[in-house]
Nucleic acid binder design. Structure first.
Lengths: 204, 204
DNA sequence: CGTATGCTCAAACGATCGTTTGATTCTCTG
DNA sequence: CAGAGAATCAAACGATCGTTTGAGCATACG
């Protein structure tokens, strides 16, 4: 654990790791603070409660992730020559960049956990703070897939989201073959996911 | 809670509900036994421990689910006129039948949870007991998609599995429009999932 | 220098967890 | 019917949980 970082940052980083490994309930504050090298009471002092710590773990990553997603989307949304692949790239690339970053490689597993848990308070938090991102992407998908009914589109987006979340939660776990650079591997994976998602979204 | 069923069955049914709602860690034996209308000590008496109870919750559903899957697969595997849709039907239909069954409608959410949790002991249990099912399906997919490399096929199956697990964990939650029968709705959903999975698996 | 403020610390709080115990009740067989 | 074995029960076990407390330490400002 990096002892030069602030106590809050050390807690957030250790929490991300333990939440990914053992889940939100399974990771205790005692394991967490011990791994971070801080006192047990530091969590309640800096974050107020364990639940608020969970929210901050999400906020730290999702703020930048969704900012990057919206920035990438704004460059292609509404344009007449925009393709489905462009929109999917805007959605997938920032997430995979986060997964490839050493410090954030575990966050997608945390996110996948939160997806599987139908915990209402957490889902409400995610919906309130980041629901507008998904809404903008959905609007652009609807524009590019005019033949699909609203109901059909929601279905397919849900399936694609499930597949991507599942896949990205395992990204970085798989050993890469020698000789392939990190950047090349990421680019390859992005292309892979885009092709899969595009096929699932646009099939007749 | 059905008070005519045996104590073991009552515990398993209540456990399935609470595991789906609150997770394996989040659901306590006290909540569980109270919901089942049995004594707290009954879990340790009949199952030995909470972990073994979790395994039995999986075993009760997965034994019949995978038996139905293998039975359906054996009717089409290796046949010269078998299509990708046939194999996917053999994989999806038994799961959706389980989800539509009133008593088993929550199990897919439990399964989705187990998928998201990278808990090693549980994954090892699933792999040891039901890994051969996935292996047989994979072999048949490989036969029908000869152009795909081994690596590519694993990738796509993983993505499809993620999408289907995600989708089926939410099945039964969505309110159906009036007039559509349960059977018709299920048939419609099966066709939907098959089309999506086939598109994702077989795209060039 | 004195003190105010932000932070860390060991220790304890009450609650709840999974599990065990020993007595009691039920069920069935000889 | 008598008695053995299976099942259920209330109660308690030690452990661990999230949170709180109050003293101690640091840094900065008058």
């Amino acid at each position: 654990m990096n002892s030069s970082a602030s106590t809050k940052e050390r807690i957030l980083t250790a929490a991300e790791l333990l939440f990914a490994q053992r889940g939100f309930d399974g990771a205790s504050l005692r394991q967490l603070t011990a791994a971070a090298g801080v006192n047990l009471a530091a969590v309640n002092y800096h974050f107020g409660s364990k639940d608020r710590l969970v929210e901050e773990v999400f906020r730290r990553r999702l703020d930048t992730l969704n900012a990057h997603r919206l920035a990438a989307l704004s460059k292609v949304a509404g344009q007449p020559d925009t393709t489905l692949d462009d929109v999917l790239d805007a959605f997938i690339r920032p997430a995979l960049a986060l997964s490839s970053d050493g410090s954030g490689s575990l966050f997608m597993r945390v996110l996948a956990r939160a997806f599987a848990e139908h915990d209402d308070t957490l889902r409400q938090f995610l919906s309130e703070n980041y629901g507008h991102v998904m809404r903008q992407f959905t609007a652009e998908f609807a524009r590019l897939l005019p033949k699909l009914s609203r109901e059909e589109l929601y279905w397919r987006i849900d399936l694609v989201t499930g597949a991507l979340t599942h896949a990205m939660s395992g990204f970085g776990m798989i050993q890469r073959k020698g000789g392939v650079s990190e950047a090349a591997h990421r680019e390859q994976t992005i292309a892979h996911l885009i092709r899969f998602a595009a096929a699932g979204l646009s099939h007749p």
